[in-house]
């Protein structure tokens, strides 16, 4: 009964030095339009700041975007820090320019899903809604 009332809360973050935030901002709005509460950190965030924000905000999901090629390093650091802060239950997903060979490595490191360029935001929202059911 109460489960129905739970809102999905998502933190969208841009780790690293990359300033290309078009995709991140579009996803923020798309998730809002899918009924979620979305917190956006802005660009140029350290993995530490992202993990702290995720914990303070009590989110269910963290969505990471990186187009600079630094994703392997940055995404895995965010996952590791979340676990260290006792927030390993927060589900991490990601997007950006991620070469195909990197995807299995990132998934193994704890990134639940990777959305490559050209993914429809509806698919992302649908995935979040679906995945939220297991929470």
């Amino acid at each position: 009964m109460n489960e129905k009332k739970r809102k999905i809360r998502v933190l969208i973050a841009k780790p690293g030095l990359d300033g290309h935030d078009r995709g991140a901002k579009v996803v923020v709005r798309a998730l809002r339009d899918a009924g979620m509460e979305v917190i956006y950190t802005g660009i140029r965030q350290t993995p530490e700041a992202i993990a702290s924000a995720a914990v303070q905000e009590g989110v269910d999901f963290v969505g990471l975007s990186c187009l600079s090629g630094a994703h392997n390093n940055l995404f895995t650091r965010v996952v590791r820090l979340l676990r260290k802060k006792g927030a390993g239950d927060i589900i991490v997903f990601a997007g950006g320019i991620i070469p195909a060979p990197d995807i299995p490595k990132l998934k193994k490191a704890g990134v639940r899903e990777i959305f490559p360029p050209g993914t429809s935001t509806r698919d992302i929202a649908q995935w979040v809604l679906q995945t939220a059911k297991e929470l």
Partner: peptide, 22 residues
């Protein structure tokens, strides 16, 4: 690369993962 564009040397902690990338 981004560290050069944002004024960090390649060995700066914030450059980690970004050196030579873009």
């Amino acid at each position: 690369d981004l560290p050069t564009q944002i004024g960090y040397d390649s060995d700066h902690p914030l450059a980690e993962g970004e050196v030579g990338k873009v």
